[in-house]
Amino acid sequence: MTIQKIAYSVFVAFMASLFTLVSVNALSSSDPDDAADDDLDPITLEELAEHDGAESCWKAIHGRVYDVTDYVPDHPTEEDVVLEWCGREATEGWDNKRPGVPHSPRAEGLLEAYLIGRLVDEEGEPVEAATEDTDTVAERLSPAEDERLHRAMLGLPLDGRYRGVFIDRGVIQVNITFDLEDGHFTGLAYRHLAYRDDDYLAMEEGDDLYPVLVQYRQILERLEGQPVTAIFALYEPERVVDDVDGYTGATLRGAKVISAIRDALNRGVYAWP
Protein backbone atom coordinates (compact mmCIF):
# COMPACT_ATOMS: atom_id res chain seq x y z
CA MET A 1 0.00 0.00 0.00
CA THR A 2 1.36 3.39 -1.01
CA ILE A 3 1.75 6.30 1.39
CA GLN A 4 -1.05 8.12 -0.42
CA LYS A 5 -3.47 5.20 0.11
CA ILE A 6 -2.53 4.95 3.79
CA ALA A 7 -3.07 8.65 4.27
CA TYR A 8 -6.40 8.45 2.47
CA SER A 9 -7.54 5.51 4.64
CA VAL A 10 -6.57 7.36 7.79
CA PHE A 11 -8.46 10.44 6.61
CA VAL A 12 -11.61 8.41 5.84
CA ALA A 13 -11.43 6.72 9.25
CA PHE A 14 -10.99 10.07 10.99
CA MET A 15 -13.99 11.61 9.21
CA ALA A 16 -16.13 8.58 9.98
CA SER A 17 -15.23 8.83 13.67
CA LEU A 18 -15.93 12.56 13.68
CA PHE A 19 -19.32 12.02 12.04
CA THR A 20 -20.18 9.38 14.64
CA LEU A 21 -19.28 11.70 17.50
CA VAL A 22 -21.36 14.50 16.05
CA SER A 23 -24.33 12.19 15.58
CA VAL A 24 -24.11 10.81 19.11
CA ASN A 25 -23.85 14.30 20.52
CA ALA A 26 -26.89 15.44 18.56
CA LEU A 27 -28.90 12.47 19.75
CA SER A 28 -27.92 13.01 23.37
CA SER A 29 -28.30 16.80 23.40
CA SER A 30 -31.92 16.57 24.44
CA ASP A 31 -32.50 16.11 28.16
CA PRO A 32 -33.52 12.49 28.84
CA ASP A 33 -35.56 13.67 31.79
CA ASP A 34 -37.61 15.87 29.46
CA ALA A 35 -38.33 12.88 27.26
CA ALA A 36 -39.28 10.83 30.29
CA ASP A 37 -41.58 13.58 31.57
CA ASP A 38 -43.53 13.51 28.31
CA ASP A 39 -44.47 9.92 29.12
CA LEU A 40 -45.76 10.81 32.60
CA ASP A 41 -49.44 11.42 33.31
CA PRO A 42 -50.27 15.15 33.50
CA ILE A 43 -51.53 16.25 36.93
CA THR A 44 -53.02 19.69 37.51
CA LEU A 45 -52.61 21.82 40.62
CA GLU A 46 -56.31 21.32 41.34
CA GLU A 47 -55.94 17.54 41.21
CA LEU A 48 -52.80 17.72 43.32
CA ALA A 49 -54.63 19.72 46.00
CA GLU A 50 -57.13 16.88 46.46
CA HIS A 51 -54.37 14.67 47.93
CA ASP A 52 -53.44 16.72 50.96
CA GLY A 53 -53.51 14.30 53.89
CA ALA A 54 -52.16 11.11 55.40
CA GLU A 55 -54.75 9.00 53.57
CA SER A 56 -53.42 10.28 50.23
CA CYS A 57 -50.32 12.46 50.12
CA TRP A 58 -49.06 13.78 46.78
CA LYS A 59 -46.26 16.32 46.41
CA ALA A 60 -44.94 18.27 43.45
CA ILE A 61 -41.16 18.68 43.38
CA HIS A 62 -39.33 20.33 40.48
CA GLY A 63 -42.28 19.85 38.16
CA ARG A 64 -42.85 16.18 38.99
CA VAL A 65 -45.59 14.70 41.18
CA TYR A 66 -44.95 11.99 43.75
CA ASP A 67 -47.42 9.86 45.71
CA VAL A 68 -45.59 9.41 49.04
CA THR A 69 -48.61 8.09 50.96
CA ASP A 70 -46.98 4.74 51.71
CA TYR A 71 -43.76 6.40 52.85
CA VAL A 72 -45.30 8.82 55.35
CA PRO A 73 -45.22 6.32 58.28
CA ASP A 74 -41.56 5.50 57.50
CA HIS A 75 -40.30 9.09 57.34
CA PRO A 76 -37.62 9.63 60.03
CA THR A 77 -39.28 12.80 61.39
CA GLU A 78 -42.74 13.27 62.85
CA GLU A 79 -45.57 12.55 60.42
CA ASP A 80 -46.75 16.14 60.68
CA VAL A 81 -43.55 17.37 59.01
CA VAL A 82 -44.35 15.40 55.86
CA LEU A 83 -48.06 16.18 55.88
CA GLU A 84 -47.33 19.92 55.75
CA TRP A 85 -46.37 19.54 52.09
CA CYS A 86 -49.13 17.21 50.93
CA GLY A 87 -51.31 18.44 48.10
CA ARG A 88 -49.08 21.27 46.95
CA GLU A 89 -45.87 22.42 45.32
CA ALA A 90 -43.17 21.22 47.74
CA THR A 91 -39.91 22.11 46.01
CA GLU A 92 -39.06 24.73 48.62
CA GLY A 93 -39.27 22.18 51.44
CA TRP A 94 -37.33 19.59 49.43
CA ASP A 95 -34.50 21.99 48.63
CA ASN A 96 -34.35 23.27 52.21
CA LYS A 97 -34.35 20.27 54.52
CA ARG A 98 -32.48 22.75 56.66
CA PRO A 99 -32.02 26.36 55.53
CA GLY A 100 -29.92 26.15 52.37
CA VAL A 101 -29.38 22.38 52.71
CA PRO A 102 -31.31 20.12 50.26
CA HIS A 103 -32.22 16.48 50.73
CA SER A 104 -29.45 13.97 50.07
CA PRO A 105 -28.85 12.01 46.84
CA ARG A 106 -30.02 8.92 48.72
CA ALA A 107 -33.33 10.65 49.48
CA GLU A 108 -33.62 11.59 45.81
CA GLY A 109 -33.19 7.94 44.90
CA LEU A 110 -35.94 6.93 47.33
CA LEU A 111 -38.23 9.65 46.00
CA GLU A 112 -38.13 8.37 42.42
CA ALA A 113 -39.90 5.18 43.47
CA TYR A 114 -43.02 7.27 44.16
CA LEU A 115 -43.10 9.22 40.87
CA ILE A 116 -46.59 9.22 39.35
CA GLY A 117 -46.82 12.21 37.01
CA ARG A 118 -45.83 15.70 35.94
CA LEU A 119 -47.34 18.95 37.13
CA VAL A 120 -49.23 20.99 34.51
CA ASP A 121 -51.47 24.04 34.44
CA GLU A 122 -55.02 24.16 33.09
CA GLU A 123 -53.68 24.38 29.54
CA GLY A 124 -51.51 21.32 30.02
CA GLU A 125 -48.27 23.30 30.12
CA PRO A 126 -45.54 22.28 32.59
CA VAL A 127 -45.56 24.09 35.95
CA GLU A 128 -42.07 24.86 37.17
CA ALA A 129 -41.15 25.40 40.81
CA ALA A 130 -40.80 29.04 41.84
CA THR A 131 -37.38 28.95 43.46
CA GLU A 132 -34.99 31.80 44.04
CA ASP A 133 -31.92 31.96 41.82
CA THR A 134 -29.00 31.39 44.19
CA ASP A 135 -26.60 32.96 41.69
CA THR A 136 -28.68 36.14 41.76
CA VAL A 137 -28.63 36.13 45.56
CA ALA A 138 -24.87 35.73 45.55
CA GLU A 139 -24.50 38.67 43.17
CA ARG A 140 -26.83 40.86 45.20
CA LEU A 141 -25.35 40.28 48.66
CA SER A 142 -21.76 40.07 49.80
CA PRO A 143 -20.80 38.34 53.08
CA ALA A 144 -20.57 41.80 54.62
CA GLU A 145 -24.20 42.54 53.67
CA ASP A 146 -25.96 39.20 54.09
CA GLU A 147 -27.96 39.47 57.32
CA ARG A 148 -29.05 35.82 57.10
CA LEU A 149 -25.42 34.80 57.19
CA HIS A 150 -24.71 37.14 60.10
CA ARG A 151 -27.58 35.75 62.20
CA ALA A 152 -26.69 32.15 61.38
CA MET A 153 -23.04 32.65 62.31
CA LEU A 154 -24.03 34.24 65.62
CA GLY A 155 -26.49 31.47 66.42
CA LEU A 156 -29.49 33.81 66.15
CA PRO A 157 -32.80 32.66 64.63
CA LEU A 158 -33.28 33.68 61.02
CA ASP A 159 -36.26 35.67 59.83
CA GLY A 160 -38.87 33.44 58.24
CA ARG A 161 -41.81 31.18 58.94
CA TYR A 162 -41.51 28.43 61.53
CA ARG A 163 -43.61 25.43 62.48
CA GLY A 164 -43.13 23.15 65.46
CA VAL A 165 -44.90 20.55 67.57
CA PHE A 166 -45.08 19.21 71.09
CA ILE A 167 -45.61 15.45 71.10
CA ASP A 168 -46.24 13.28 74.14
CA ARG A 169 -46.31 9.48 73.83
CA GLY A 170 -46.57 9.71 70.08
CA VAL A 171 -49.56 12.07 70.12
CA ILE A 172 -49.37 15.67 68.91
CA GLN A 173 -50.78 18.04 71.54
CA VAL A 174 -49.53 21.39 70.27
CA ASN A 175 -48.73 22.38 66.70
CA ILE A 176 -47.80 26.03 66.30
CA THR A 177 -46.80 28.30 63.44
CA PHE A 178 -45.27 31.77 63.57
CA ASP A 179 -43.08 34.22 61.70
CA LEU A 180 -39.94 35.88 62.98
CA GLU A 181 -39.11 39.44 61.95
CA ASP A 182 -35.80 40.64 63.34
CA GLY A 183 -36.12 38.06 66.09
CA HIS A 184 -39.66 39.12 67.08
CA PHE A 185 -42.84 37.03 66.88
CA THR A 186 -45.57 37.78 64.36
CA GLY A 187 -48.48 35.78 62.98
CA LEU A 188 -48.61 33.23 65.80
CA ALA A 189 -51.34 30.61 65.42
CA TYR A 190 -52.20 27.12 66.60
CA ARG A 191 -52.59 24.52 63.89
CA HIS A 192 -53.44 21.82 66.43
CA LEU A 193 -54.23 22.08 70.15
CA ALA A 194 -55.50 19.07 72.04
CA TYR A 195 -55.20 16.99 75.18
CA ARG A 196 -56.40 13.40 75.35
CA ASP A 197 -59.80 13.46 73.62
CA ASP A 198 -60.29 17.21 73.91
CA ASP A 199 -59.72 19.18 70.70
CA TYR A 200 -59.57 22.75 71.94
CA LEU A 201 -59.69 24.33 68.49
CA ALA A 202 -63.03 22.63 67.83
CA MET A 203 -64.61 24.04 70.99
CA GLU A 204 -67.26 26.73 70.96
CA GLU A 205 -68.24 29.33 73.52
CA GLY A 206 -70.26 27.63 76.22
CA ASP A 207 -68.29 24.37 76.19
CA ASP A 208 -66.81 23.46 79.57
CA LEU A 209 -63.19 23.78 78.44
CA TYR A 210 -63.69 26.76 76.14
CA PRO A 211 -62.11 29.10 78.74
CA VAL A 212 -58.90 27.10 78.44
CA LEU A 213 -58.85 27.78 74.68
CA VAL A 214 -59.32 31.48 75.47
CA GLN A 215 -56.25 31.37 77.69
CA TYR A 216 -54.16 29.56 75.10
CA ARG A 217 -55.12 32.25 72.61
CA GLN A 218 -54.10 34.90 75.11
CA ILE A 219 -50.61 33.38 75.14
CA LEU A 220 -50.26 34.08 71.43
CA GLU A 221 -51.71 37.58 71.80
CA ARG A 222 -49.15 38.42 74.50
CA LEU A 223 -46.26 36.99 72.47
CA GLU A 224 -47.18 38.93 69.32
CA GLY A 225 -44.46 41.49 68.60
CA GLN A 226 -42.29 40.24 71.45
CA PRO A 227 -38.71 38.93 71.10
CA VAL A 228 -38.13 35.18 71.07
CA THR A 229 -36.89 35.29 74.67
CA ALA A 230 -40.44 36.18 75.80
CA ILE A 231 -41.34 32.48 75.66
CA PHE A 232 -39.70 31.93 79.04
CA ALA A 233 -42.52 33.86 80.71
CA LEU A 234 -44.70 30.84 79.89
CA TYR A 235 -43.07 28.86 82.67
CA GLU A 236 -45.35 31.00 84.87
CA PRO A 237 -48.44 31.18 82.61
CA GLU A 238 -50.49 32.95 85.28
CA ARG A 239 -48.34 36.00 84.52
CA VAL A 240 -49.31 35.84 80.83
CA VAL A 241 -53.01 34.95 80.75
CA ASP A 242 -56.11 36.21 82.51
CA ASP A 243 -58.30 34.25 84.89
CA VAL A 244 -61.38 33.29 82.86
CA ASP A 245 -64.53 31.88 84.51
CA GLY A 246 -62.68 30.34 87.42
CA TYR A 247 -59.92 28.79 85.32
CA THR A 248 -56.47 29.78 86.52
CA GLY A 249 -53.11 29.82 84.81
CA ALA A 250 -52.45 26.44 86.37
CA THR A 251 -54.94 24.99 83.88
CA LEU A 252 -52.47 25.74 81.12
CA ARG A 253 -49.35 23.81 80.25
CA GLY A 254 -47.19 26.70 79.15
CA ALA A 255 -44.18 24.39 78.87
CA LYS A 256 -45.91 22.59 76.00
CA VAL A 257 -46.14 25.81 74.02
CA ILE A 258 -42.51 26.57 74.83
CA SER A 259 -41.51 23.10 73.61
CA ALA A 260 -43.44 23.53 70.37
CA ILE A 261 -41.79 26.91 69.73
CA ARG A 262 -38.33 25.58 70.51
CA ASP A 263 -39.00 22.59 68.26
CA ALA A 264 -39.81 25.03 65.45
CA LEU A 265 -36.59 26.96 66.06
CA ASN A 266 -34.57 23.75 66.11
CA ARG A 267 -36.08 22.63 62.81
CA GLY A 268 -35.11 25.92 61.19
CA VAL A 269 -36.96 28.11 58.73
CA TYR A 270 -40.00 26.42 57.21
CA ALA A 271 -40.49 29.08 54.54
CA TRP A 272 -38.52 32.20 53.68
CA PRO A 273 -40.29 35.57 53.82
Results as ranks from 00 to 15, higher is better:
E84F: 06
L45E: 15
H62M: 10
G93Q: 02
R64F: 14
S28G: 08
W58R: 11
A36K: 13
D74N: 15
P32V: 12
A26K: 14
G93E: 07
D80F: 14
S29Q: 08
V65D: 09
G87W: 04
K59V: 13
E89T: 02
D70Y: 04
D52W: 10
G63F: 06
G53H: 09
L40H: 11
L45M: 10
T69D: 12
D31A: 09
L45H: 04
D41H: 10
D31I: 07
T91C: 00
G53E: 06
H62N: 14
A90Q: 05
V65G: 02
C57L: 14
W58T: 02
S29Y: 09
V101H: 06
D95T: 01
P32F: 06
W58Y: 13
A35E: 10
E55W: 11
G87V: 04
E92T: 00
Y66T: 14
P102D: 04
A49M: 02
R64S: 09
V82E: 07
W85M: 07
G93M: 03
N25I: 11
G63R: 12
E50I: 12
E50L: 14
S30A: 14
S30V: 15
D34Q: 08
E84P: 12
A90P: 00
K59R: 15
G100M: 12
K97F: 08
V81C: 07
K97D: 06
A54K: 13
D74V: 11
E55C: 11
V81I: 06
R88V: 09
N96M: 02
G100A: 12
D70G: 12
L83R: 04
E79N: 02
D52H: 15
V72G: 09
A35I: 13
G63C: 05
A49Y: 00
C86Y: 06
L40T: 05
P76T: 01
A54P: 00
H75T: 01
V72D: 10
V81E: 09
E46Y: 12
A60F: 01
D39V: 10
T44I: 05
A49E: 03
L27M: 11
H51V: 08
G93K: 02
H62C: 04
C86T: 00
T91F: 05
T91Q: 02
E84K: 05
W85A: 08
D34P: 12
V81N: 02
N25D: 07
L45G: 15
H62F: 06
D52K: 15
G100L: 03
D95L: 08
D80G: 10
D80R: 07
